[in-house]
Deep mutational scan, measured.
Amino acid sequence: QVLVIRIKIPNSGAVDWTVHSGPQLLFRDVLDVIGQVLPEATTTAFEYEDEDGDRITVRSDEEMKAMLSYYYSTVMEQQVNGQLIEPLQIFPRAC
């Protein structure tokens, strides 16, 4: 299952990153890619938005798994409803 992660860049749009092994993705892998997209920032975590629009911070593989399972459940709903699949949007955080 292909996963598209949209890395939101403060004040300048976003970069889409296509991942072919989504469920095996590790927290460190995401930080590495964010580091390539935002080389001047030191990113130690990132956030995503849940169904209520609240930002949830991801700082570990466990939290990463929770984010992915949340995302895959929303994708299934979108597929069932015949909607366009939205990329998983993440917001890098420099701490």
Rank of each mutant, 00 (worst) to 15 (best):
T57H: 05
Q89M: 13
L25I: 15
F91C: 06
T18V: 04
E47S: 03
H20I: 02
F91P: 04
W17E: 00
E47N: 02
T44A: 09
C95F: 10
L68M: 12
I85D: 07
I7V: 06
D54R: 12
A41T: 11
A14W: 11
I34T: 04
I34R: 00
P87M: 05
H20C: 06
E40Y: 06
M76R: 14
V15T: 06
D29R: 03
Y72D: 08
E77K: 14
N81S: 08
Q1I: 13
T42D: 15
V4T: 15
A94M: 15
A45V: 05
K8C: 12
Y72R: 11
A14H: 15
V33P: 04
Q78V: 07
E40D: 09
P23E: 10
Q36R: 13
Q89W: 09
Y48K: 00
D52V: 11
D54H: 14
G22V: 11
I7Q: 01
F46Q: 00
I34P: 10
T18I: 07
K8D: 06
R59K: 14
L88S: 01
L84E: 15
T43H: 14
Q79H: 10
E86N: 07
Q83P: 09
G82F: 06
D32Q: 07
V4L: 12
V4K: 15
P39H: 07
L84Y: 11
V58I: 05
I85H: 10
D29P: 02
R59T: 09
E40G: 10
Y70D: 08
T43S: 12
I85C: 13
S12D: 15
G35E: 15
I85W: 07
I5D: 03
Q79T: 12
P87T: 00
K65L: 06
E51I: 12
G35P: 04
P87L: 04
P92M: 00
V30S: 04
P10Q: 05
L3I: 15
P23L: 07
K8Y: 06
V58P: 00
R59P: 02
T18W: 03
R59F: 10
P87H: 02
G82L: 05
D50I: 10
P23Y: 10
A45M: 09
R6N: 01
D29M: 00
Y48N: 11
D50M: 14
I9R: 13
G35Q: 15
V19I: 11
R55K: 08
L25A: 05
D54C: 11
S12H: 14
S60T: 12
M64H: 06
D50Q: 11
F27T: 05
P10T: 04
D61V: 00
V15G: 02
P10L: 02
V2Y: 11
Q78Y: 10
E63M: 02
M64D: 03
E49F: 11
M76L: 10
V80D: 13
D32L: 05
H20E: 09
M76I: 12
T43I: 09
A45L: 03
K65Y: 03
D54F: 10
S60L: 00
D50F: 01
Y48C: 02
D16K: 00
A45D: 12
K8H: 13
V19G: 01
V75C: 11
V33F: 11
A41Q: 15
D61I: 03
S69D: 15
T57A: 14
D54N: 12
P23K: 07
L26R: 15
Q1V: 10
V37A: 07
L3C: 06
L38I: 08
T74R: 11
S73W: 08
L26P: 05
D16W: 00
G82P: 09
P39T: 04
D52E: 10
D54W: 05
R6D: 00
V75H: 11
Q89R: 08
I5P: 00
V75I: 11
R93L: 15
R55T: 03
R6F: 01
T44S: 08
S69M: 08
T44L: 11
E86A: 09
L31S: 05
Q24G: 09
M67L: 03
P39I: 01
Y70C: 05
N11F: 04
G22P: 12
L68G: 02
R28V: 07
R55M: 09
R59V: 03
E49I: 07
V58S: 03
V33W: 11
K65A: 07
A41R: 09
I5C: 02
C95S: 14
V2G: 13
A41S: 13
I56Y: 06
D61F: 06
C95I: 09
V19N: 03
Q83T: 11
Q24S: 09
S60N: 15
S21C: 06
